[in-house]
């Protein structure tokens, strides 16, 4: 599972949706793999508006990436994003994958397993 994906998902338990603790989910025992993706600066700029920055900072720090700016960059024509920030984002969001590990909800503590890079969000009957 790619790190960018974790920015779009939350706990599958309905009662958790209203809790701020359920997003982002927290990686545990994550085995990270880097897979090369062609670098495209425009692409990174295009996805910035679709990113919840505060959640990304939390996820990144948990995985050991601490070089992201604390505030979401807002590039303009006069002040475009620096090459280094773009490359850091590219590497973290698109190239870093979790192949095995867990995602844990900070509200209900439910654990979602990741196997072969695919996270399983199916719930046991009593939680549906």
């Amino acid at each position: 599972m790619k790190i960018l994906t974790s920015n779009y998902i939350t706990c599958a338990v309905k009662a958790c949706k209203s809790s701020t603790l359920s997003f982002p989910l927290h990686f545990q025992d994550a085995e990270l793999v880097q897979e090369e993706v062609d670098f495209n600066a425009e692409f990174i700029v295009g996805i910035l508006p679709r990113i919840e920055w505060d959640a990304l900072i939390v996820t990144a720090a948990e995985l050991g990436f601490t070089n992201l700016p604390a505030q979401k960059p807002e590039p303009t024509e006069e002040a475009p994003l620096g090459e280094q920030v773009l490359k850091d984002l590219h590497k973290l969001l698109l190239e870093t994958q979790v192949t095995e590990g867990k995602l844990v909800c900070g509200n209900c503590q439910h654990i979602y397993n990741i196997h072969q890079g695919i996270a399983n969000f199916l719930l046991p009957n009593h939680l549906v």
Partner: peptide, 20 residues
């Protein structure tokens, strides 16, 4: 386009509100 992932799950239950 950029393919993010496939997830195992029931309909849209794991997705954050407003994300799609």
């Amino acid at each position: 386009g950029f393919y993010l992932d496939s997830l195992t799950g029931n309909l849209t239950t794991p997705l954050r509100d407003g994300s799609v």
